Computed example of a mutant assay.
Amino acid sequence: MKNVYCPDCNAALELCTGSGRCAACHKVYRLEARCPVCQQPLEVLKACGAVDYFCRNGHGLISKKRVEFTPV
């Protein structure tokens, strides 16, 4: 996963499951999976322990390696 940065102070976030914590300003952000092509939120598909991402805007299944996580 690529580094995700704090929207307030631009420090790298410490990533946890579904969230990121900024050690510099002590804020916690929920992380949203976004399509690398259209930047729209992705649908998260979970089955049998696997997690997949689907773009409803015509880009289909998105590889976990390509998903961009954005602090919200």
Score class of each variant (00 low, 15 high):
A50L: 13
A12N: 05
K46N: 15
D52F: 03
E32V: 15
D8Q: 08
L45A: 05
H59R: 01
Q40R: 15
R21I: 09
C48E: 13
G60S: 10
E43N: 09
L42Y: 03
T17P: 00
C22R: 05
K46E: 15
R30C: 01
T17H: 05
G58M: 06
Q40C: 08
R34D: 03
L45H: 05
K64C: 11
D52L: 12
A47Y: 10
T17I: 05
M1P: 06
L31Y: 02
R30N: 00
C6K: 07
D8E: 14
A23L: 15
A47S: 14
C25K: 08
R21H: 13
R30W: 00
V67A: 01
R34H: 13
T70R: 14
A33Y: 02
S19F: 09
C16S: 13
Q39H: 12
C38Q: 06
V51N: 05
P36I: 07
N3K: 14
K64I: 00
R21K: 13
A23G: 08
E43M: 08
E43K: 11
V37D: 00
C6W: 02
C16N: 12
P41M: 14
G58L: 08
F54I: 00
R56F: 01
G49M: 10
K64E: 15
F69H: 08
R56V: 04
V44I: 15
V44L: 13
N3F: 05
A33W: 02
G18P: 03
L42H: 00
K65C: 07
G20M: 04
L45R: 07
Q40T: 11
R56S: 09
I62Q: 01
M1S: 15
R66P: 01
P7F: 08
K65G: 14
D8H: 10
Q40V: 06
A50Q: 13
G49C: 12
K2S: 01
R66Y: 05
A11E: 11
C25I: 10
D52A: 13
E32I: 15
A23T: 14
Y53I: 06
K64A: 15
S19N: 08
V28Q: 14
Y53V: 02
L13G: 03
E32K: 15
G58C: 10
K65W: 04
S63V: 00
L31F: 01
E32Q: 15
A11M: 12
L31P: 02
V37N: 03
H26E: 05
L45V: 11
L31A: 00
G49I: 08
G58T: 09
K65S: 10
C9E: 09
C38V: 04
